[in-house]
């Protein structure tokens, strides 16, 4: 028995594989999904997705989005997602600093811009954490 997992962002498909189980961070806590899970639609918050498949565990960093599980198919729609191996620590740090310095002028920005920058910072720190864990 296996699950089909796909992770898609506006920049393209990040992950599309057959897996055994997946654990993802949702707004109401971590949710683990294995085959036969009831249909579920939930909101994802920035965090770390752990995918167990034959031959090991994959980790991915995601920013906010939605996850849907129907049948034996899990679809994750995220603003951003990156697999652990592709994380470039230097680039992440630069992106984080850029966003943080931009946030200093927060007064002149609209709420949406601030939200977006905050998500960027969160996403960056998750990538850093994930990288450090290893």
């Amino acid at each position: 028995m296996s699950l089909q997992l796909e992770i898609v962002t506006p920049h393209g498909k990040v992950y599309d594989e057959t897996v055994e189980s997946v654990v993802m961070p949702t707004t109401s806590g971590e949710v683990g999904i294995m085959t036969g899970h009831i249909p579920l639609l939930t909101e994802i918050q920035p965090g770390d997705i752990a995918v167990t498949k034959e031959g090991g565990v994959d980790h991915l960093a995601v920013s906010k989005g939605f996850a849907q599980c129907i049948g034996d198919k899990v679809s994750i729609l995220a603003e951003n997602a990156i697999s652990e191996d592709d994380i470039d620590v230097n680039e992440v740090e630069a992106a984080m600093l850029r966003a943080q310095s931009a946030l200093k002028n927060a007064k002149e920005m609209s709420e949406e811009e601030i939200n977006m920058l905050e998500t960027t910072v969160q996403y960056a720190s998750i990538q850093q954490l994930l990288k450090k864990k290893k």
Binding site: V31, I38, L40, L41, E43, F66
Partner: peptide, 24 residues
């Protein structure tokens, strides 16, 4: 259409999910 016809569960609840999913 997917074959799985069990009722869908919303976490935390339908209203919250739909209010952010639909505009998105």
């Amino acid at each position: 259409e997917n074959i799985d016809d069990r009722k869908i569960k919303f976490e935390p609840d339908p209203a919250t999910i739909l209010s952010s999913l639909l505009p998105l």
